[in-house]
Design a binder for these strands. Structure first.
Lengths: 223, 223
DNA sequence: CTTACATTCATTGTATACAAACAGAGTGAC
DNA sequence: GTCACTCTGTTTGTATACAATGAATGTAAG
């Protein structure tokens, strides 16, 4: 799904800023394809909440602080539930996956700080691996699509959070706390650890939004 | 979105049973349109979880009892949250909407029993109105898409539940309990009332699945 | 100067033709 | 008889042409 991924990247990286209109022909030219695959990608993006379609055409969605708060509320609810279920249903293989993801995380932070070979994208990816491992351990595959939707939006505000060693270490510690609770099958402890972890991330994103304060910035226009 | 609605109806009414393959041309012929709108509808249905696409083509999704249980778990989580938030944030207008929906429900049950003018579809619709009013009262519009997804699937198993006066009255009572808690801004009471209401519905659907036991029935083939 | 209407242009929605990919049947070798 | 391979037919994926629909601009009347 390369057309979809490409547009998604452009939105998440800010190349297509909020409120920018996305015409099919523009995207078709840019991605050197026809309008048909573009339309399908746009439909999917809309169902993920990254775009909105008006009477005529589609625009990159604009999110207010309230939106972000509410989306994070849902993410907390869903991932908290996943963590609680994981504490009950996790297999030994699940635990191994989580441990592995955390080791990778640890190494990636070192690498990022020391050599700079590892990129933020890599770190985001490894973080994602851990969260996915938790969902997998919950043994409820239906959760995935819901969490995907609430996870993707805040990535638009890829905050300074992810560039800060202290925050990265803190995040890893949170993962370890969570993993311990899941190992010990301590369901409520796991849920709360996840709640705290996600709300902490939310606070950082909201802080970021305050500083750049682009809520009301007009859309860049094409051409 | 009439093509989408039409295919959805066919799936929910059992005309397109689980595992049935849906080829684009077949649907295009049936709905007297071209493949393009069909493809878009199928993409959307897939994102709602009603179909799955294989390497080649798409099939109506088949759900096991475990799937239904897990989907209801998520629905309970989400609607319970919505109810709790509604208890906090509801406006007077929200309360009025809920009261109205419950009145309609009451009348519809009477009408259904006595005259038979009101159909099950009507009743489902009014039930839906109440649940939507609760979500609206939560003041978190991002919940809608998530709940839509977990609500639609069980409709495939439109159980006997909806044909039974006693169950309908019971359901209305549950709505009233919930409404009272929301009126009194009793958040935890509202959450629990919603949990109970949804799990009760789940029990009925699972009971239904036991009796018909079509989990392992092969797919009808076209032609 | 403002409003209402009409004409034009840009953009989306639908149909269709063509290319690509996969499944299944048939054929041949071992 | 079985396995592997090719060939054929069906079905999806992509491009493109055409139709339909809004939006915007210009024009004329009040």
């Amino acid at each position: 799904m390369t057309v979809y991924e490409s547009i998604k990247r452009s939105i998440l990286h800010g190349e297509f800023p909020p409120k920018m209109r996305l015409t099919e022909e523009f995207l078709a030219n840019k991605l050197e394809t026809s309008r048909t695959p573009i339309r399908e990608a746009l439909k999917q993006l809309e169902s993920e909440g990254l775009t909105v379609s008006m009477k005529r055409g589609v625009r990159v969605r604009h999110f207010t602080k309230k939106d972000i708060q509410q989306i994070y509320d849902l993410r907390t609810l869903l991932e908290g539930y996943a963590a609680a279920q994981a504490a009950i249903h996790r297999t030994e293989a699940d635990l191994e996956n989580m441990r592995l993801a955390n080791e990778s995380y640890d190494n990636a932070i070192d690498n990022y700080i020391q050599t700079g070979e590892t990129t933020i994208e890599d770190i985001l990816d490894i973080n994602h691996q851990f969260h996915n491992a938790v969902i997998h351990a919950s043994q409820n595959p239906h959760i995935y699509s819901h969490i995907t939707k609430v996870v993707v939006v805040p990535l638009i505000f890829r905050s300074f959070y992810w560039f800060n060693e202290e925050q990265l270490r803190h995040s890893l510690e949170a993962h370890k706390t969570l993993l311990k609770a899941i190992e010990e099958q301590d369901m409520e402890r796991a849920r709360v650890a996840m709640h705290e972890h996600i709300y902490h991330g939310r606070d950082e994103v909201l802080k970021q939004m305050d500083t750049i304060d682009e809520q009301y910035s007009p859309a860049k226009e094409i051409q």
